Computed example of a mutant assay.
Amino acid sequence: MEEQQSPFKAAIQPGLTIGLVSLALTFIAYFIDATLLGSAWFGLIAIVIFFVLIIYFGKQYRTEIGGYMTFGTAFNFSFIAILISGIISLIGQLLLFHVIDPSLAGVLSDQAFENALSMMENFGASADSMSPEQLEDMRANTSRQFTLSGQLMGFGIGIIIYAIIALILAAILKKRDKSLDY
């Protein structure tokens, strides 16, 4: 009988794969047009690809372990794969923003600031109603997210988001063996 991999070991390869795909998408978007990285469409496409891949690898793992997977096993598999993917993405983004193109952070920060102002106007608020200090604080906050400490803090917050996503994915991936019901 073949020994089954633990969810932790099984999640390493999918996590690496998803992280590298995410990194490739980021760099492709950067080379096409750097402002795509701040685009909502790019983010949406990346999230869809991310979910499709993690569900694919999760179903593949479920098949490997006999076709059934508990919620806990599915959560562990999903969370570890997402965490590994996130670490790879973080390393790639740190390289991109601090080594390859340090000016990119300013471009994306300006784009994020303009997007925030546009969203405020869509909800009926005007940038004119804000004081110059408030606008400057808003601009500083958007710039801060691209600094080294901002990216590391974002990753820390991302771990909580990863856990929530892993809970959702675990609910999708779990499959109970109904033959064990009495």
Results as ranks from 00 to 15, higher is better:
F75S: 03
N122R: 11
F71P: 01
I159D: 04
L16E: 03
S103F: 00
L135T: 08
A29F: 13
I168V: 15
S149C: 02
S149V: 07
F27Y: 15
E2P: 12
Q111H: 09
V21A: 05
A34M: 08
T26W: 03
Y182C: 00
G156K: 01
I49G: 05
P102M: 03
Q93C: 04
I100F: 02
E136D: 11
T142W: 10
R139Y: 10
Y30L: 08
A29D: 02
M153V: 14
S6I: 00
G43E: 09
T35P: 06
I100E: 03
F57Y: 14
I32P: 13
A116T: 14
L180A: 11
F79I: 09
K9S: 13
I168L: 12
D110Y: 09
T63K: 11
S118H: 09
Q145I: 15
A112C: 02
G150V: 12
D110A: 12
Q93S: 13
A74L: 10
I54Y: 02
V107D: 03
W41N: 14
L104I: 08
L20G: 08
I164Q: 07
Y56A: 07
F123Y: 14
A127H: 03
I161V: 12
L95Q: 06
A46P: 00
L108W: 10
I65E: 07
F77W: 06
S22I: 07
Q134R: 12
I164H: 03
I47K: 03
D128Q: 15
N76W: 04
L135V: 14
A163P: 02
T73C: 10
A163M: 07
A11M: 03
F27E: 05
A127F: 00
G150W: 01
T17R: 07
F75E: 01
I84A: 06
L44N: 07
L20K: 00
D137Q: 15
I87D: 07
T73I: 13
I157Q: 12
F97N: 00
I160A: 11
I168F: 08
T17E: 10
V52C: 04
E64F: 06
A81G: 12
